Amino acid sequence: MKTIVICSGGLDSVSLAHMVAAEQQLTRLVSFDYGQRHRKELDFAAAAARRLGVPHDIIDMRTIGAALSGSALTDDIDVPDGHYAEDTMKVTVVPNRNAIMLTIAYGIAAANGDQAVATAVHGGDHFIYPDCRPAFTEAFDAMQRAALDGYADVRLYTPFVHQTKGDIVTAGAKHNTPFADTWSCYKGGDKHCGRCGTCVERREAFHLAGVKDPTEYADPDFWRQAIAGKDGG
Rank of each mutant, 00 (worst) to 15 (best):
I104H: 14
Q115H: 14
V91M: 05
L42K: 03
N98P: 09
G194W: 10
L29G: 00
R224E: 13
L148P: 03
H83N: 09
G82W: 06
H56I: 10
A205R: 04
S31F: 00
L26D: 01
S69L: 04
I64E: 08
A226F: 12
A72L: 04
Q225H: 11
C132P: 02
V14F: 05
S71F: 05
L156H: 12
D114N: 10
A116W: 09
T198A: 09
N112D: 14
D87L: 11
N176K: 15
G194E: 05
D87E: 11
I64N: 03
T182S: 13
A17S: 08
A21G: 07
V211K: 00
D231F: 13
D114S: 02
Y34I: 07
R133M: 12
I100N: 01
K212G: 02
D81L: 10
Y129A: 03
A146P: 02
D231Q: 15
Y186D: 00
T164W: 07
H18R: 02
Y34N: 04
K212A: 15
L102C: 07
A46R: 10
V161K: 13
Y157W: 05
D219L: 11
P159I: 09
D81F: 13
R39T: 12
A99Q: 11
I104C: 12
K40R: 13
G70W: 03
G233Q: 14
A21F: 08
D114H: 11
T170K: 15
V20Q: 03
Y151L: 11
G150D: 02
V54G: 02
R195K: 12
M19E: 08
C196S: 00
Y129D: 03
C7H: 06
C185T: 09
I227D: 07
I6C: 15
F160T: 03
A142W: 06
H18C: 06
T103G: 14
D141S: 13
V94F: 04
H18F: 06
P95F: 06
A85E: 15
A171S: 07
Q24C: 01
D167T: 04
G197Q: 11
G197S: 10
P95Y: 11
A218D: 15
D213G: 02
G194L: 10
H162F: 13
